[in-house]
C-alpha cells in the first residue's frame, strides 16, 4: 500500500474518531444512548461521504462502503426472504407444529394444498446444486417463465392495447358549432375550444405516428417513413419533458442527503 494512501486512511480514521466524540458529546442532553447514537450518525455520514468520493474516482473508501452495502443488503434480503415468505406466509398456512416452533399464529382456515406446489418447485430449483440431477432445476424455471408470459399476455393486452386504443377515441372537433363560430370565438385560453381541439389532434396524430414507428413489418420509407419520423420526434419531446421532471426528483434526493450531513451530523442548520 502506498504511503499516501496509508496517511489518508489514518487521517480519515482520526477525523472519524473526533467526529464521533464531538457528536456524542452534543447528544448527551437529548438521549441516554448518546455514544451509540453518535457512532450511528457519524458512521452514516462517513458512508455517505465514501459513496460521494466515487465522483472523484474509484478509491479504497468507496470500495469499503460498496462491499459493506452489498454484504449487509445481501444478508438482509436473504433473511427477509426466509422470515417474510417462508415463516411469514407459508408456515402459518400449512403447519401448526412449525407455526408453534417459529412462534407465528397458525391460520388453519387459510390452508390450501396448492401451497405445497411452490415448495416443491423451490426444492427442484435447489437441485441445481447437484451435478447428477441439476437439470431438473430447469422445470421450475420453465414454469415461472411460462406462467409469466401467460399472465402478462392478458394483462398487457388490457392495459397497453385496449385501454390505450379506447383512450384515443377523442373528438377532433370539440363543441363544434360551425367554422364561423370557431373563428369568431378563437381564443388561446387553456380551457378554450382551440386548445382542447389542438390537444386532441396531438393525441390522435401522436399515437398514430408512434404506432407506425414501432411497426416492424414495413420499411420506413415515403409517407410511412415520414409518419415514423414524426412518431420518433413526439417520443423524443416526451422523453425531454420526462427527463427534466425526473432530474428534479433526483435533486430532491441529493438535497435529502446534504440535509442529513449538515443538519443531523454537523448540526449547522436547525
Amino acid at each position: 500500500m502506498k504511503r499516501t494512501t496509508v496517511l489518508v486512511m489514518v487521517g480519515a480514521i482520526v477525523i472519524f474518531g473526533i467526529s464521533w466524540v464531538l457528536k456524542s458529546m452534543s447528544l448527551t442532553s437529548t438521549t441516554d444512548h448518546y455514544i451509540a447514537k453518535g457512532f450511528a450518525i457519524t458512521f452514516a455520514a462517513f458512508l455517505t461521504l465514501c459513496i460521494f468520493s466515487f465522483l472523484y474516482k474509484d478509491n479504497p473508501f468507496y470500495k469499503f462502503a460498496e462491499h459493506l452495502f452489498v454484504g449487509v443488503s445481501a444478508a438482509f434480503w436473504m433473511s427477509m426472504g426466509f422470515w417474510s415468505t417462508i415463516v411469514g406466509n407459508l408456515i402459518p398456512r400449512v403447519s401448526e407444529t412449525l407455526s408453534n416452533y417459529f412462534k407465528v399464529p397458525y391460520h388453519p382456515e387459510s390452508y390450501n394444498p396448492f401451497y405445497f406446489l411452490p415448495v416443491f418447485l423451490g426444492i427442484l430449483l435447489l437441485l441445481r446444486l447437484s451435478r447428477k440431477v441439476g437439470w431438473v432445476s430447469r422445470w421450475p424455471l420453465a414454469f415461472i417463465v411460462g406462467t409469466t408470459a401467460g399472465f402478462n399476455f392478458i394483462r398487457y393486452l388490457r392495459s397497453d392495447f385496449i385501454e390505450q386504443v379506447s383512450a384515443t377515441f377523442v373528438p377532433l372537433l370539440v363543441d363544434w358549432q360551425g367554422i364561423g363560430h370557431f373563428f369568431s370565438n378563437l381564443s388561446l385560453s387553456s380551457t378554450g375550444q382551440f386548445v382542447a381541439m389542438l390537444s386532441n389532434w396531438v393525441i390522435f396524430f401522436g399515437v398514430l405516428c408512434g404506432i407506425i414507428y414501432f411497426f416492424f413489418s414495413k420499411e420506413h420509407k415515403g409517407v410511412f417513413g415520414g409518419a415514423s419520423k414524426i412518431g420518433i420526434w413526439i417520443l423524443m419531446i416526451t422523453f425531454g419533458a420526462s427527463f427534466g421532471y425526473t432530474v428534479m426528483g433526483r435533486i430532491s434526493l441529493l438535497v435529502g442527503r446534504i440535509t442529513f450531513l449538515f443538519k443531523d451530523w454537523l448540526s449547522l442548520i436547525s
Binding site: 384515443t168 377515441f169 373528438p171 377532433l172 372537433l173 363544434w176 398514430l208 404506432i211
Partner: peptide, 18 residues
C-alpha cells in the same frame, strides 16, 4: 389498433359535431 383508432376518432368527431 391503427385502423380502430382511425375509425373511432372519425366516428366520435362526426357523431359529436353533427
Amino acid at each position: 389498433a391503427m385502423i380502430v383508432i382511425l375509425v373511432g376518432v372519425i366516428a366520435v368527431t362526426i357523431g359529436n359535431a353533427w
